[in-house]
C-alpha cells in the first residue's frame, strides 16, 4: 500500500509511535465536539494524503452505515437527557441522546481513520524495531511468521490445484468441499512441519542460539525526529492540561453544556489542531516542494 514515498513514513519509529499513540488516545477519550471535529477532519485529510480518493470513497460505503448504526443505537437504548423529542414504545428519545450518539459516531470514525493511517505508516518492520529490544525472541518470531504467511498461502493454492487435477473434488456438495479443504489442510501441516525442520537447520548453521544475539535495524534518528517528538509532547501537555482542568469540559447529560470559547480553550483547540494536522501539513508541504523542485529541473 505504501509504495509511494510518504514523508511521514521516513520518520523514526519511536517518534511515529509517540505521535500515533497521542493522536489515537486523545481522540478516544474525547467528548468535546470541537475536539472531535478537529480529529475527524484531520484524520480524513491524513488518509487522503496516503491513499487515493477512489479507495477513500469506496471505504465510505462501509463507514457511513457503520456511523449511522452507532448514531442510532445510542438514542434507542439510552434515555437520559431532559429534552424528549418523541416517544417510542413508551420510552423517550431525547435530543441529548441523539446528539451524543452522533458525537460517539464521529469519535469512532475518527479513531478508525487514525488507525488506518497508523497501519499504513507503522508497518511490521517499524513495529518489530520498537518492540524487538524489549522482547528480542518475539520480534524474530514475528518476522518469521510474516515470512511464513505468504508461503503458506501459496502452498495451499498449489496443493489444492494439484488435488483438483487428480479428480479429488468429486461433487459440488458442501460436505465434499469441507472434506477436501480438510485434506488440503492436513497436507499443508505435514509440508510446513517438514520445511520448518529445514529452516531450523539453516538457523542453527547461521549461529542462532549463540549468546549475545544483537538486533539489526535500518533506522536512524535525525534532528527532525527529535523535533517531531518535542512538538508532539508539548501539544500533548497543553491538551491534557485542557482535559484535566475544566477548560474544554463538555457534557451531554443531563443537559447539553455550552462549548467553552475563551482564550484558554481556544489555546487548547489550537494545540490540538497543530498536533492533528501536522502529518497532513507535512505531506502537502512535501508535495508542493517536489512540484517546484520538478519544475526547476
Amino acid at each position: 500500500m505504501n509504495d509511494k514515498m510518504k514523508i511521514f513514513n521516513t520518520y523514526h519509529p519511536l517518534g511515529l509511535f509517540i505521535y500515533f499513540a497521542s493522536a489515537i488516545v486523545i481522540t478516544m477519550f474525547m467528548i468535546n465536539p470541537v475536539m472531535l471535529t478537529i480529529a475527524i477532519i484531520s484524520g480524513i485529510a491524513f488518509v487522503l494524503t496516503l491513499t487515493d480518493i477512489r479507495t477513500f470513497l469506496k471505504n465510505l460505503a462501509y463507514e457511513i452505515p457503520f456511523f449511522i448504526l452507532i448514531a442510532l443505537t445510542n438514542p434507542l437504548f439510552s434515555h437520559n437527557g431532559v429534552t424528549p423529542l418523541f416517544f417510542l414504545n413508551g420510552n423517550a428519545v431525547t435530543l441529548e441522546a441523539v446528539l451524543y450518539g452522533l458525537d460517539m459516531g464521529i469519535m469512532i470514525l475518527g479513531v478508525i481513520y487514525w488507525c488506518k493511517c497508523y497501519s499504513i505508516i507503522v508497518d511490521s518492520e517499524k513495529f518489530i524495531y520498537l518492540f524487538g529490544k524489549a522482547i528480542p525472541k518475539l520480534s524474530l518470531v514475528l518476522s518469521m511468521a510474516l515470512k511464513f504467511v505468504p508461503v503458506f498461502k501459496r502452498q495451499y493454492r498449489k496443493i489444492s490445484d494439484a488435488q483438483k487435477c487428480f479428480g479429488y473434488y468429486a461433487t459440488d456438495s458442501y460436505f465434499d468441499k469441507i472434506r477436501n479443504a480438510l485434506r488440503v489442510f492436513s497436507c499443508l501441516i505435514t509440508w510446513s512441519l517438514e520445511s520448518s525442520i529445514d529452516t531450523s537447520v539453516a538457523m542453527k548453521a547461521k549461529g542462532y542460539g549463540l549468546k549475545g544475539r544483537t538486533h539489526f535495524h535500518n533506522f536512524r534518528f535525525h534532528i527532525r525526529d527529535l523535533f517531531l517528538i518535542a512538538v508532539t509532547l508539548f501539544m500533548d501537555i497543553v491538551v491534557f492540561t485542557g482535559i484535566g482542568t475544566d477548560i474544554i469540559d463538555f457534557r451531554f447529560y443531563p443537559k447539553i453544556t455550552q462549548i467553552n470559547l475563551n482564550a484558554e480553550s481556544i489555546a487548547v483547540y489550537g494545540a490540538f489542531i497543530i498536533l492533528m494536522f501536522m502529518p497532513a501539513f507535512l505531506e502537502i508541504k512535501e508535495k508542493i516542494k517536489w512540484k517546484y523542485y520538478v519544475e526547476r529541473i
Binding site: 518469521m144 515470512k147 529445514d198 549475545g212
Partner: peptide, 22 residues
C-alpha cells in the same frame, strides 16, 4: 524457500551477524 528465515531481505542478510553479536 525453507532456508530463508525472515521476512525482509536486509534482515536475512543480517541474521548470521546478529547471531555473532555484531
Amino acid at each position: 524457500e525453507a532456508q530463508i528465515v525472515t521476512d525482509k531481505v536486509y534482515h536475512e542478510l543480517a541474521f548470521v551477524l546478529e547471531s555473532l553479536s555484531y
